[in-house]
Design a protein around this nucleic acid. Structure first.
Ligand code: ZN
Ligand code: ZN
Ligand code: ZN
Ligand code: ZN
Lengths: 166, 166
DNA sequence: CTTGCTTTTGCAACAATATAACATAATACT
DNA sequence: AGTATTATGTTATATTGTTGCAAAAGCAAG
């Protein structure tokens, strides 16, 4: 059971140019939506692009600002609806502990969403770790609990920031 | 490495009378605060009592309502400050995925907070599962990531509700 | 291509959650 | 008692997210 290569590598250097991550993510999203008969409209595409361009968790109102810079007046509901769609299609995750959104690193693949989030530089790595998934499943099983969704968000210091502070 | 007995058992029957959970939790809290030289004031104690009396996740504004029923006008900041204190003392956890609070089942013990939450009846079980903790640590280590806090919240159906729907 | 249907977006108001700033009160310490 | 510290009251505000309805855009059959 191979894991698909993620769209973006984990904990890349902060100043790395990630234009290609953005365009790869957009291409992948196009393909996924086409295959599913879903409409990746201009707005939804734009929101996804902004999410990826930031390359770290962004709040809905942050996205709203960015949209306004380009498209004039935009209402919250507009952003939230686009984000809802992108989440339904598994292209974006919501991070409950940050009230923020991030592009999915494994779009199209069945996975549960596990995140390492640096509290210093906001860099984030999405994992799809079998050990973690299994441990959760085993624990739920032991309690007779049926999982429908999991939130796994780990805060701490990424390798770069750890060095900078140690 | 034995786990301490939790204050409340997991997935008890919904209609079970949990007065003794409440008083046990309060007693434990008193002891912990006394030992640490922290002040479990009337307000803080009251909030903790309300959290436990509900025995399922409660929102801050829900607590606010309950406080008002007893003490007249109360402002949000009052509740949030009490909750902050209780969280600092490890007597209460905040559930990021629900914007809600729950009494800690392992007060005084070092643990990370892992939750199974029934989306049907809101019953909740707090775990301190070594497998899960270890899997998270191992995965973080592999990425050179230093953990400071983890959010593990699993949504799904508890044993009772699963039966009721199967 | 136009009519009717469905989906998406615009727009306005509002709801829910959380925090900030500063004054007053209670408690602890000397 | 007098002073410092901590906790609470009070008011206002910030942040995040939703609802409802109307206009617009996309789609499909005739
Ligand atoms: Zn993902
Ligand atoms: Zn970092
Ligand atoms: Zn706990
Ligand atoms: Zn249940």
């Amino acid at each position: 059971m191979e894991q698909p290569a993620p769209v973006s590598p984990a904990f890349i250097a902060t100043d790395h140019n990630h234009d290609h991550c953005v365009s790869l993510a957009l291409q992948t999203a196009e393909a996924i939506c086409r295959e599913r008969g879903q409409r990746l409209t201009t707005l939804r595409r734009k929101v996804l692009e902004l999410v990826w361009a930031n390359h770290r968790p962004v709040g809905a109102y942050g996205l709203l600002e960015m949209l306004r810079d380009e498209s004039g007046q935009v209402a919250p509901a507009t952003v939230y609806r686009a984000l809802d769609f992108l989440q339904e299609q598994g292209l974006v995750h919501r991070l409950a502990s940050l009230n923020a959104f991030i592009g999915c690193a494994f779009p199209g693949a069945a996975h549960t969403g596990q995140f390492l989030i640096c509290t210093s530089c906001q860099e984030l790595a999405e994992l799809d770790d079998r050990q973690i998934t299994e441990a959760l499943r085993a624990s739920a099983d032991a309690s007779g609990f049926t999982i429908s969704h999991t939130t796994v968000e780990v805060l701490g210091l990424c390798p770069h920031c750890r060095k900078g502070r140690a």
